[in-house]
Design a protein around this nucleic acid. Structure first.
Lengths: 313, 313
DNA sequence: GTCTATAGTACGATAGAC
DNA sequence: GTCTATCGTACTATAGAC
């Protein structure tokens, strides 16, 4: 029996090595540059071997997506512990953007490449963190039950939030991030800091879109933003949360920006400036300046080369 | 001399045919499926001929971007005539999103594919519309000079807005859309409906990011948004403009949604629901359901095929 | 389980005849 | 100005020996 188990472990190990290599390639050269041959080269196996572990290049990509999304969730989930719902949302927003600009190619792969990759991420990774979210919900229940100040601020019974998160984890684990947002929104609404008429689902989607837009533009546009990224994020968060806080009952406009602590979570390291750490390297295309010149490989000065985007066929 | 001119016309005509064919391919199959060979097939010329008109596949892509961006600007520019700055911004926002979801693959090409394409769009198309923007600025000067009600509402001297737009057209024609937004913002600020401390450049970028996020998610995410797209856009616009309107001096929150005419510009046809009209066809990858199976062409059940993303080389 | 070898497809770009 | 022919490259995926 021990033999079978060892073999199984070895098989798993190779699987991990494949994914590791794939992840590195994607991070360095972008998803477009990911090919079975390159992975095989990197792990010093033949291309054929890969097919013993993955049915296709796309299956590897899907696995990468799932991993990446799980990683994103892991950075978000702890923030659910922030008691003040507005601050919680801001922290979530900041952490989301920070993740996006830090793990650029990963983010791009999951959220900007193709429908199927996003689907794979949500379906695959959700299951792996559903447990964590529930565990955290329990933590939070304990926390806010103990801290009178907390439940006073939150207004909402702690269980409501937890239920929302837990239900999210069960129902559609993939959309966990969205449900994390909605839970905070419900709390905000219950506290009267958001119009009762607010449709939290729509609000959450629009809010997400804003964050996604900031990340996506940063990844695609050479010079976005002109101002420091942090500043843009802050402006956006204020637009969504600073303002709506003063909406329903005539709250003094002066308190619009009066929320307690600025900068709750830095999560992904120091600043999140355009040129961060991970997921960096030569741009997928246009290695040097303008088009895609220079660096002729072996042959003449032709300029061959194509990359993928596997047509169905 | 007439002969040379005729030849020139013919050359231009072929150039147009090439771009037409390319545009159709991109709209139908996505940018990844655009290849010189396919274009050549479509116009019934040999691939080699294309190189007499364009130096590379990328140059064609750039031309496509420039065209697309010019088209976008053309739908936005007329909206600069809306007097109330908040309404103007909302109209711009709605038109922007409508354009994005209507011309899906075009939008994707310009704003979501690669840095260089966005650069090409801004550089190339801007010049072609700079004149139009200036002309419009003049129109608007005439308009608001004649209409006392207009200048009363706008508070700002009409010339300020026009100058901003005109300057934008001169300086960096590509960023014209952004400057269109900033002009409206300045007006809003001058009218005291936005805190004087607002950094319009940052605000405009964040606002743009929101719109881009909505479009981008719609293009990438299978089920975004859950609610009708219009609703999400409205929520976002309210977050940015509804609220900030009541900010500086204690304006009654009740008037938050009191702006005159809802739904100013429909621009790109009727509703802008997820499945719009133009730029549609089989998805670039995954023709049928999940991965990219089925539809084996001539050979066996292999599954060859690759697409591009020209590596530098 | 792993490799070599290869089938099959696609691509960008160019040389050189007409 | 247009074409044919072709080079050089890249890729996925499989068959079949070891």
């Amino acid at each position: 029996m021990g033999i079978a188990e060892r073999k199984n472990r070895q098989k798993q190990a190779l699987r991990e090595r494949i994914l590791d290599a794939a992840r590195r390639i994607v991070m360095r050269e972008g998803f477009a540059a990911l090919s079975m041959r390159k992975i095989a080269d990197a792990i010093e196996y033949s291309p054929a071997t890969l097919y013993l572990h993955f049915a296709s290049r796309d299956e590897i990509a899907h696995a990468l997506c799932a991993e990446g999304y799980a990683q994103l969730l892991e950075t978000l989930v702890p923030l659910a512990g922030i008691v003040d719902p507005a601050e919680r949302l801001k922290a979530l927003g900041r952490a989301y953007v920070a993740f996006g600009v830090t793990h650029r190619e990963t983010y791009r792969l999951i959220f900007m490449e193709d429908q199927s990759y996003m689907g794979a991420a949500l379906a695959g990774a959700g299951t792996s963190v559903a447990g964590k979210i529930k565990a955290l919900a329990d933590d939070k229940a304990a926390l806010s039950a103990t801290d009178p100040m907390a439940s006073a601020t939150a207004t909402t019974p702690a269980t409501e939030v937890n239920d929302a998160a837990a239900a999210a984890a069960d129902d559609d684990p993939g959309a966990a991030a969205l449900h994390l947002t909605m839970a905070a929104l419900e709390a905000l609404k219950a506290a009267g800091r958001l119009p009762a008429s607010t449709d939290t689902a729509v609000w959450a989607e629009a809010f997400w879109a804003t964050l996604h837009g900031i990340v996506a533009l940063n990844l695609t546009c050479p010079v976005f933003p002109t101002a420091p990224l942090d500043t843009v994020v802050d402006v956006a968060l204020d637009a969504w949360l600073g303002a709506s806080q003063a909406a329903p009952h005539t709250a003094p406009p002066a308190t619009r920006r009066a929320a307690p602590a600025r900068r709750v979570a830095s999560t992904a390291g120091a600043g999140m400036q355009t040129t961060s750490s991970a997921d960096r390297g030569s741009a997928p295309s246009s290695p040097a300046s303008g088009g895609k010149p220079a660096k002729a490989p072996p042959g003449k000065t032709r300029s061959p080369g194509t990359k993928r985007k596997t047509t169905g066929t």
